[in-house]
Design a protein around this nucleic acid. Structure first.
Lengths: 311, 311
DNA sequence: AGACCATTTTGTCCTAGACAAAACTCAGAT
DNA sequence: ATCTGAGTTTTGTCTAGGACAAAATGGTCT
């Protein structure tokens, strides 16, 4: 792929793209000698794309639990080796690899029409629930991986997101709206831009007969709290991709927990929680979507045993 | 509202809640003497909720165009006065249909089910084109206005966006995909997060028999250029809300124009261009969606020799 | 194994100075 | 009367290195 001349990035641009704070970027430079950005006429840092790319890779590996001292100073090849070795072991599921591979191939070819038809067929064949849990969830990981390894461009990832979003909304929209318990308000916290996780959750809830109030992405904690209480929902559902730092996310969750009355549950979903160490009291963590039916069943059982409203 | 006793907030918590950067918070303290947080045992800032609240108010007023020097040092009462006094200014003419008012009322009541059904009925009654041009476009303005006047909360605005997005995607999805000229790639530039404008444009193109490749929001210029050329599209369509500064937007457009081959047209749409001074050569500005059919007709007339259809 | 303490590691916070981009002001020109 | 451009103020972000607490690791002793 002929990458054109990309402009060097400012420190805030790098912060945005990698999720590493300015402070962190500066102190890595001081401590490990990487990244070592150029400087503009006024002494401000300018990061070449090459360094940004490596930082992105490091950031991803950090989320898997590796430590900076072993990553930041390491040469690029080592990182790539680590990245692919780690993923290769975990996600080997050859049986339905064909759907995934085809999608990736269409994406690589920018075949928008083919992609749309392919996804639509997959949705019809699998049904909404399996489409989300068996297909979309894995596909997201594949696409994210391919992107971080430079095999897919940003625009191709966008194309995928857009098409998948379309399919999911179609799927959700054609269901007759249910009204079963619990009533759920769905959104993401500030800094979490990914809509796809949200829509996938919404779909899983919909097939359980739950019609949830979705606020889209990036709703501040105090707004969530206020809206949830005004609406009188029973559960606040939040989606987290791996874009957010776990620590930051936990802090925001703690804050939200403090603002919400106890009887409103918080369900925190997303791949971010896969390697969670200490759970947070009063928050239910859902690392994979296929756990959702169980969580719902639990809630209903609890609700039924009370024989009334839990307030 | 019974806000429980929230602990004093750290500087990063305040950054999250108000959207004001740590640097900004510190320099306001230095320059204006507000906020003046407490300090913990180790000298780190601790902001009482009262100050956080005032900062939130200031942040809101800033978005309306007021300047920090007149806000940050001012006492709370002045701010509240300003916040409410500004609201009286722009009242709506009553000719704006009943549809708009009903929507706003449902939104204010957080009536998600009612809203969904209301929008769905409106879509069926008006048809996709009129739904977009006559209804959605005005509704967006009304909602934006109501929000900036403090009549709607962020979460209510999110609810609106989410529902409208759903309806638009439903509308687009049920159309049989056309393949008429020109072929269009649709996206927004970095910093422009609003999907709604994009979807409205997509809908308008769809009813003209154009199936466009949408990349969603925030695609960098170099990526747009690369993707457009690989795809071989004839037009790149970009949507701009008023969230972006016109100057920044123009710069990015100029950059994109330089990267794209001449024969690929750029159509720049959105309310941002209503007050445009100097147009940019090689870029077509579309201030309102109802101009789109005309622009398409022009394009087709110009390239009539190619015939109306492909495939 | 499990519990405890010491030692790295690591990110965030601190102060304070500098400067460019944006916003505003006002005189002069069309 | 409205636009234009130059000067001034305002404003946010960047810079630097120092400091420290929370987290992770390693080692020792039950």
């Amino acid at each position: 792929m002929p990458t054109p001349q990309l402009p060097d990035a400012s420190i805030s641009a790098v912060e945005r793209e990698t999720g590493l704070s300015k402070d962190t970027l500066r102190i890595w430079e001081r401590r490990y000698g990487f990244p070592l950005p150029l400087r503009d006429a006024h002494g401000e840092r300018l990061y070449p794309q090459e360094q940004v790319h490596k930082l992105r890779l490091i950031s991803r590996l950090l989320d898997r639990g590796l430590r900076p001292s072993q990553l930041v100073a390491a040469p690029l090849e080592t990182l790539i080796a680590r990245a692919s070795s780690d993923t290769g072991g975990a996600t080997r599921a050859p049986e339905d690899g064909e759907l995934l591979d085809t999608t990736l191939r269409l994406l690589a070819a920018y075949d928008e029409a083919g992609l749309r038809s392919h996804l639509s067929v997959a949705l019809q064949r699998l049904g909404l629930q399996r489409f989300v849990i068996d297909f979309a969830a894995r596909m997201n990981m594949r696409v994210g991986e391919a992107w971080s390894l430079g095999q897919l461009s940003i625009s191709q990832e966008h194309l995928y997101t857009e098409q998948m979003q379309h399919q999911l909304r179609q799927g959700i929209g054609t269901l007759y709206p249910g009204a079963r318990h619990p009533s759920v308000m769905l959104t993401t916290l500030p800094g979490e831009e990914h809509q796809l996780g949200l829509l996938m959750a919404q779909a899983c809830l919909a097939v359980e007969g739950i019609r949830c109030v979705s606020l889209g992405v990036q709703t501040p904690a105090w707004e969530i709290s206020e809206a949830a209480q005004l609406q009188g929902v029973e559960v606040v559902g939040l989606s987290f991709s791996e874009a957010l730092r776990q620590k930051v996310a936990l802090e925001m969750l703690k804050d939200l927990r403090a603002r919400l009355p106890e009887q409103i549950e918080i369900w925190a979903g997303g791949a971010l929680w896969a390697r969670l160490r200490r759970r947070l009291p009063g928050v239910r963590f859902i690392t994979r979507l296929d756990q959702l039916p169980r969580v719902i069943a639990d809630y209903r059982a609890q609700y039924a045993s009370w024989g009334g409203h839990t307030g």
